[in-house]
Design a protein around this nucleic acid. Structure first.
Lengths: 175, 175
DNA sequence: GTCTATAAGATGATAGAC
DNA sequence: GTCTATCATCTTATAGAC
């Protein structure tokens, strides 16, 4: 699963063959099928893993004292992995994008990836007294995801850093 | 090329076989290879098409009188095709994302897609007297691309519409 | 230029020995 | 549970008739 998660991020789900996953995991190809009946099932497992990661990250922000500090921690999270983002794009955004296209049993999953982030950010903005908290939550995540895509396109982590600073200023200026 | 552009957008480049392109274009498979030596060459042609489209769209904004009006026309452009965006994501963002991952001769092309948009937006912000015009240009495009991804993920064109309105307010509040 | 047939290789998936 | 061998299918690309 770790190998699959990495390769799906690096190359995309469809460009990644199970042979490659097996090779990186240093197991024979046939072995994979003992644990996952199909490639789609492996993808589903990787997805669940990512969703859990997201929840854990959001939970870790709760130790920050103010809503502003918690909100600023979100773009900071992408900044911390800007090298990966520049090379392969955002792991969440990439999965979401691919799943949004291909039909199948994982149809509703992109929502499961971003939904928790939106709900969490909405709660923070609401603590700031904003009635348009949900709109602001979408704005915040949109800016991060967009900045990640541009950083990848231009191969420039500075884009992510600068957009992070713009977001900081925006959050400080709210109320 | 039209069929390829459509299918690359709908399914992604790698999930699309040349047989599918041929079928939609109602030509035999072998015929494609008379015009394009490889699939990558066809992709390159589709890319050039997209780049031309972008330039034409930006040119069409020049008839608007104020920089504010021109800038607001940009998110409006995505809003106008929100149905397509919700189903298959942003055509530019999708191409950029896929190209950013797979190595090859089309390495530098994502920049060729978004670069003109950034330069154009930077010029508009500069006409508004902003010294941080380039940062604002990245912010604007990031918000649009991010909103497109979220609209696709949540299957909700309203996300694109609401983020458009937020951007309008932001642009009006500048200076 | 257009079309059919097919080669060459990759890929998802399975069978069955150990 | 693990591993090898292999099937069936799909995909890029080419050869060659028309």
């Amino acid at each position: 699963m770790e190998s699959a998660a990495q390769l799906f991020h690096e190359q995309g789900v469809h460009r990644t063959s199970l042979a490659e996953v097996a090779e990186r995991a240093e197991v024979p190809l046939g072995n994979i099928y003992y644990y996952f009946k199909t490639k789609e099932e492996l993808l589903g497992a990787v997805l669940e893993r990512r969703i859990t990661e997201v929840r854990e990250t959001l939970d870790s922000f709760e130790q920050k004292r103010t809503p502003q500090a918690r909100l600023k921690a979100l773009p900071q999270q992408w900044n911390a992995m800007s090298e990966l983002v520049v090379r392969y794009g955002c792991p969440l955004g990439g999965l979401s994008f691919e799943l949004g296209k291909c039909p199948g049993n994982l149809e509703g999953k992109p929502e499961a990836l971003f939904g928790p982030v939106i709900d969490w950010a909405e709660a923070q903005f609401r603590q700031l007294g904003r009635r348009d908290a949900r709109d602001l939550a979408f704005s915040l995540l949109a800016r991060i995801q967009g900045a990640a895509l541009l950083a990848q396109s231009f191969r420039d982590p500075g884009i992510l850093a600068r957009e992070g600073r713009q977001i900081d200023r925006w959050i400080d200026g709210l109320r």
